[in-house]
Design a protein around this nucleic acid. Structure first.
Length: 486
DNA sequence: CTAGGGTTAG
């Protein structure tokens, strides 16, 4: 950068022809805006001194801004300036770059305007622009529009397929993602490591272990490069599908691990209730000098909550506050859960009262559950009032409040809440679960008898609960009994 | 100078 500044200073002190000056400056802008050694603010200053910037320089600025974190809005701003000036004319590079910026900041309005410009410009046949459009709509969660843009691509290449699969996976339409992956293979397009990241991620979301395993075997057979992102996706998939041992194996074999990889492993251990292991992994991460991020701490706190490790949790909470990680709603949620599970409901309430941001319904529900378990009627009623104000139509809130009343044997108040629900036409949503076996997803809702093997399954469940009872587990059934008594 | 990727609590 120092040498560059000297060159730039000389350019202005010598009488170079305008065209030479512009050309040299455009190269400087490109370097400063796009290289990791560059400096976007410097690029901006040099850009402003180019007498008549060509499209190449505009493109460098638009792309450069979108590459720097938190600068993507300026990227869109540069594009607007370019359009207002009327020249030079945007090309396929410009459109792809600005669409990328719009997708990063979810600028739906601006992106739509770019799309109409794509129509008029005749650049709609560029595969780069087409894919950028699909990606833009997907990132704005306009998945239907993304699909329309995708279907309009006559010659779909690997990147186009990958973009659409990733779009589905990201918005949680995991079956659509897996279905499209199958279609892609039928169309004779071979996936690469980028495609497979989204496919594995979709498997994690669907709990589709069989497909995930198959894809893992496929990539080993095809000698696909299992890089950092793909390994992380695999660790996550195995953890989410219940195979914590396989997740650990993939994780251990990773040659390099960044914060996301460590976080994935820690969260995976936490959801398996392996709290000690999760904390151990966290200290190994610190030893490896990898800086934890907000997700890492979410994993650490949830591990502490699941393991009842109150003092550990408090310790990590305060060290998080000391480091530069701002506690988010999710972090508060974990901490409140940790305290409530440890019967420290008062402390949890104090924590919530000290929050800079008002608590969301999730946190209030966690507190309410804490109140119910500790038979704290008055406090619970106050929280329920806040909750019903925020979400007057959520059945879960009424069910919780009614079970609070049940826990302290306030039957009149309980039936009053039930009546209120009925009057408002609010129905409790039955709990449901699903599991994939041999590529087929079986769904179950609370009390339904729709599955063809319901009888056999009920018998197996009965045997399992007998076994856990033999191991000394006491089911928590007082709520159920109270409801039955009413 | 173009387009696609991993982790988020209850």
């Amino acid at each position: 950068m120092r040498v560059l500044r000297q060159i730039q200073a000389r350019l202005f002190t010598r009488p170079f022809p305008i065209s030479t000056l512009s050309f040299a400056l455009s190269k400087i802008v490109a370097f400063c805006a796009l290289s990791s050694l560059g400096d976007i603010d410097y690029a901006r200053r040099v850009f402003s001194r180019i007498p008549n910037p060509g499209i190449f320089s505009w493109n460098s600025m638009i792309r450069g801004c979108s590459l720097v974190e938190n600068h993507s809005r300026e990227s869109v701003y540069f594009f607007k300036r370019l359009v207002r000036r009327g020249y030079p004319c945007p090309n396929t590079f410009t459109l792809a770059f600005v669409l990328k910026a719009c997708s990063i900041i979810s600028a739906c309005e601006e992106g739509l305007q770019v799309h109409t410009r794509v129509f008029r410009s005749g650049f709609g046949s560029s595969p780069f622009v087409q894919t950028a459009l699909v990606n833009f709509y997907a990132k704005c969660e306009e998945i239907g529009l993304a699909r329309i843009a995708f279907d309009e691509i006559p010659e779909k290449n690997l990147v186009a397929w990958s973009t659409m699969i990733s779009g589905y996976a990201k918005v949680g339409l995991v079956n659509e993602a897996l279905g499209l992956f199958r279609e892609m293979q039928k169309a004779g397009v071979e996936p690469d490591e980028v495609t497979l990241v989204s496919v594995i991620s979709a498997c994690a979301g669907a709990g589709a272990l069989d497909i995930g395993r198959w894809v893992h075997a496929y990539m080993e057979k095809q000698m696909i490069d299992i890089d950092l992102e793909l390994s992380t996706a695999l660790v996550n998939m195995y953890a989410k599908c219940g195979c914590i041992e396989r997740a650990k194996k993939v994780f251990c074999e990773m040659p390099v691990k960044d914060a996301k990889a460590w976080s994935t492993m820690i969260v995976g251990l936490a959801i398996h209730g392996l709290s000690e292991s999760a904390l151990e992994t966290f200290s190994r991460m610190e030893e490896a000098k990898v800086k934890p991020n907000h997700v890492t701490l979410l994993g650490v706190l949830s591990a502490c909550a699941h393991g009842g490790l109150v003092s550990e949790g408090r310790k990590h909470w305060s060290s998080m506050l000391e480091s530069r990680i701002e506690p988010s709603m999710e972090h508060y949620s974990c901490m409140v859960d940790l305290l409530c599970r440890a019967h420290l409901v008062d402390e949890a309430c104090n924590l919530v009262e000290d929050m800079a941001i008002p608590p969301n319904p999730v946190i209030l529900r966690t507190l309410l559950v804490g109140c119910k378990k500790n038979k704290m009627l008055d406090r619970g009623e106050i929280i329920a009032e806040q909750l019903l104000e925020l979400e007057p139509l959520n059945a879960e809130n009424y069910v919780l409040l009614s079970s609070l009343y049940a826990s302290v044997s306030q039957w009149e108040k309980m039936s009053h809440i039930r009546k209120k629900m009925k009057d408002k036409g609010i129905k409790a949503v039955p709990g449901c679960s699903f599991i994939e076996v041999d590529g087929f997803v079986h769904e179950f809702a609370m009390g339904d008898q729709f599955h063809p093997e319901t009888e056999e399954l009920t018998e197996i469940l009965r045997e399992i609960s007998e076994q856990v009872r033999d191991f000394g587990h006491k089911p928590f059934i007082s709520d159920v009994l109270h409801k039955a008594a009413c």
